[in-house]
């Protein structure tokens, strides 16, 4: 293991601010998994997910001098990733409305998940069930269950009251339970 990698985030950030780009590589390496969980969870497995991931770290690099460390770096990056993912979803929706492409965004019913159940593996079924949620519900599920943030942290990241997050979590879980009925033995 490289010695620089063992340092905490603040030390690495200081190095980056002083022009040491290899320190940034370690930060990317440290947080890419967390960012991937957020972005793939929000967008699904698509080509844009990698671009959005790169853009997340690029935004952080550009604004690194403004990063004061008030929140943890992971939370900061997740916030950027969620916002960029929501922008990407809006872009997709606009494209769908403009070109009338048969985009898979937000129009599949829960029944679709179960219809070709035998053909799909568990991961695919769960991915599809998550994808069928609207972005508002999806974001709380991804942050709370996939990323493992507390309800309070999820509310801070999404800039929402805790009550709204709890209510969205409840409704999203009911929808997911319905969609994943066949997986539960």
């Amino acid at each position: 293991m490289n010695s620089i990698d063992s340092h905490d985030d603040n030390y690495l950030i200081e190095l980056v601010k002083n022009g040491n780009d290899s320190a940034f590589t370690f930060l990317v390496s440290r947080y890419k998994h967390q960012v991937a969980k957020t972005i793939f969870g929000m967008l699904g497995n698509c080509a844009e997910a990698d671009d959005v991931g790169q853009e997340t770290f690029l935004r952080f690099y550009k604004s690194i001098n403004n990063f004061r460390g008030d929140s943890r770096l992971g939370t900061y990056l997740t916030r950027i990733a969620i916002n960029l993912s929501l922008n990407e979803l809006k872009k997709r929706k606009r494209k769908y409305l403009f070109f009338h492409f048969d985009n898979d965004e937000n129009h599949l019913e829960i029944g679709d998940v179960n219809s070709d159940f035998e053909k799909k593996d568990t991961k695919e079924i769960i991915d599809m069930a998550i994808k069928n949620l609207t972005p508002e519900f999806r974001s709380v599920i991804i942050l709370r269950l996939v990323n493992g943030y507390s309800t309070k942290e999820a509310a801070e990241i999404l800039n929402l009251p805790i009550g709204t997050v709890l209510s969205r979590l409840s409704r999203a879980q009911i929808k997911l339970k319905e969609a994943l009925k066949k997986l539960i033995i």
């Binding site: 991937a36 969870g41 990698d50 568990t122 991961k123 769960i126 998550i130 269950l145 996939v146 994943l180």
Partner: peptide
Amino acid sequence: ELNEVREFIKKQDYQF
């Protein structure tokens, strides 16, 4: 059932 659903979702893993 809710526990199962939550466990399924928690196990989802994604990588670049």
